[in-house]
């Protein structure tokens, strides 16, 4: 508070002084003769004393601790059209077969992974992949599988099945996968 009042006072004085002196240099043409001697050597900036970011070599090791997920023969992937999450007829047939497996293995819990092809935007695809996983989950629930057994996760375009480009690769990568959590 006191500081700011000081500053206001200083600014007012400065303006007065500037007007009084008439800012004479502004009205003259730029000097051609050698300029007044330069200011004293500028204060040194010590860049090595500024804080440095800490890389991983200086940090404790943090390894991934993700649950082990397994693919099983009885659970098949389904595919989707570009930028779509609605289930096509073929996907419904596969999900009905997957439901048969799940009824035969009532103790197993399943993670449904939603995936996209590489073309869309990364964050949008994370949301789209989740929509795909959710569509598969909802259909399995409608077939009588307990929702508590089914969790979903989206990987967007982060885990392509096929790393090449082109229509065929993209079609394979737009998918939902079903994995057993063990």
């Amino acid at each position: 508070m006191k500081k700011s009042r000081c500053f206001a006072f200083a600014s007012a004085l400065a303006l007065l002084l500037a007007v009084a002196v008439g800012c004479s240099s502004t009205t003259k043409p730029a000097p051609v003769a050698p300029a007044p001697p330069p200011p004293a050597a500028p204060a040194a900036t010590d860049v090595s004393r500024q804080p440095q970011p800490l890389g991983v070599e200086s940090q404790p090791v943090q390894s991934g601790d993700v649950a082990d997920l397994q693919e099983v023969a009885g659970l098949k992937r389904i595919n989707f059209a570009y930028n779509q999450f609605t289930l096509e007829d073929q996907a419904r047939v596969v999900l009905e077969q997957n439901a048969v497996y799940l009824r035969r293995h009532p103790a197993e819990k399943i993670v449904i992974e939603g995936h996209c092809d590489e073309r869309g935007s990364d964050e949008y695809n994370l949301a789209l992949g989740e929509r795909r996983a959710l569509a598969a989950k909802n259909y399995l629930v409608s077939l009588g599988i307990a929702a508590e057994r089914l969790s979903i996760i989206s990987y967007g375009e982060e885990k392509p099945l096929v790393t090449t480009s082109g229509e065929e690769a993209w079609a394979q990568n737009r998918r939902a996968e079903f994995k057993v959590a063990r």
Binding site: C6, L13, A14, L15, A18, V21, S24, T26
Partner: peptide, 19 residues
């Protein structure tokens, strides 16, 4: 005193700025 010092510095700056 601080105000005066600051005023002198600022006044100088104000004169310098346009050029």
């Amino acid at each position: 005193w601080r105000s005066l010092a600051a005023a002198l510095a600022l006044g100088g700056l104000l004169c310098l700025l346009p050029a």
